[in-house]
């Protein structure tokens, strides 16, 4: 297994390089002028523009030099020394402060979504073709069709403002859980629709297979058949898919954090988008994709554990 993980880690290198190349192209080549003009304000003189260029490092050669922009870009990423944001705070500090809040929001959200949608999907698959199944499916499709922003805005308005069941906005005095409860709830509601639908197709593929019939023929109860025999087989596509839902969690944390004022990574990213702070956005892109690659690796390892037919070599 260590050999497998090392091989997978080596496979990450071109991907990470690709991400760095892309962020470089986006923010240093295509977007450079935009950043400069934004900072310069109205009617800048060429001198001011040159100053800003120099300050942001845009005056250096792009690629072919020892201190070229690309080399600096890669160096920053490899050493995890991302420099400073526009407000002069080191980006790494911003990250360190934001991570706990983001985790407090996304981890419960993640497990909430997976547990609820897997259970619902199993039930829907078992009662396939009945009214129960159809209603679940319709609710899921309707849930997926409702705009994300409206979930957040209406949720915040009705649940927190009108009926005062939760906190409307982050306040540092209260515990993180009382601050994060409503965003977590909204995140789960949003995430369920698509997941239930996907897991249901996965379950349907499995529920008609021979081993389910065998398990019933043994006299096992429905509960044991579904939650032991079916679930362990369906685990394999489920694991792969949960990794695919992670980017949606990022979306969740982005908008949720900014609406509820939670000072996590998502909120920081949105602020950076608003103020066109390219070094922060570039760093976030890099960090998120590293996380994503690592989660992919974890999912592949879990995959091999869940399915005895797959070996690590």
């Amino acid at each position: 297994m260590p050999a497998y993980i090392i091989r997978r880690l080596l496979y990450m290198i071109p991907i990470v390089f690709g991400v760095l190349l892309l962020t470089f192209l986006l923010f240093n080549v295509v977007g450079a002028d935009q950043a400069v003009y934004r900072l310069a304000g109205n009617n800048p003189t060429p001198e001011i523009l040159d100053d800003i260029r120099h300050e942001l490092g845009y005056d250096k050669p792009l690629i072919f030099s020892i201190d070229s922009q690309f080399v600096t870009h890669v160096k920053k990423a490899v050493t995890f020394n991302f420099g400073k944001a526009l407000d002069k705070e080191p980006i790494i500090d911003k990250l360190k402060n934001g991570v706990p809040y983001s985790l407090a929001l996304t981890v419960p959200m993640f497990f909430g979504i997976v547990v609820t949608s897997v259970s619902l999907a199993i039930l829907a698959a078992f009662y396939r073709g009945t009214w129960f199944d159809r209603i679940i499916l319709l609710i899921c499709v309707a849930g997926m069709s409702f705009p994300y922003l409206s979930y957040i805005i209406f949720g915040q308005y009705f649940i927190a403002y009108k009926y005062d069941l939760f906190q409307i906005y982050f306040s540092p005095q209260r515990s993180i859980w009382s601050n994060a409860a409503l965003p977590i709830l909204i995140g789960i509601v949003v995430g369920i629709g698509g997941n239930v639908r996907f897991y249901r197709t996965v379950m349907l593929d499995e529920i008609n297979s021979g081993y389910i019939r065998t398990a019933f023929a043994k006299g096992l109860s429905t509960r044991v058949v579904l939650f032991k025999h079916l679930l362990k087989n369906a685990m394999i596509p489920i694991i792969t898919n949960t990794v695919l839902t992670l980017p949606y969690l990022c979306l969740g944390s982005l908008l949720l954090e900014s609406f509820f004022g939670i000072p996590g990574i998502g909120g920081i990213t949105l602020d950076a988008i608003e103020s066109r702070d390219f070094s922060v956005i570039s760093t976030m892109t890099f960090i998120f994709s590293i996380l994503f690659v690592i989660f992919n690796l974890i999912s592949d390892v879990c995959y091999a554990f869940a399915d005895p037919r797959i070996s690590f070599d």
């Binding site: 071109p14 190349l21 990213t269 994709s289």
Partner: peptide, 17 residues
């Protein structure tokens, strides 16, 4: 490479630029 960057961040980055 593209699919390893969460889509939402990617779109935002492109949209900003």
């Amino acid at each position: 490479t593209l699919s390893n960057i969460p889509w939402i961040i990617l779109v935002m980055a492109f949209a900003v630029v």
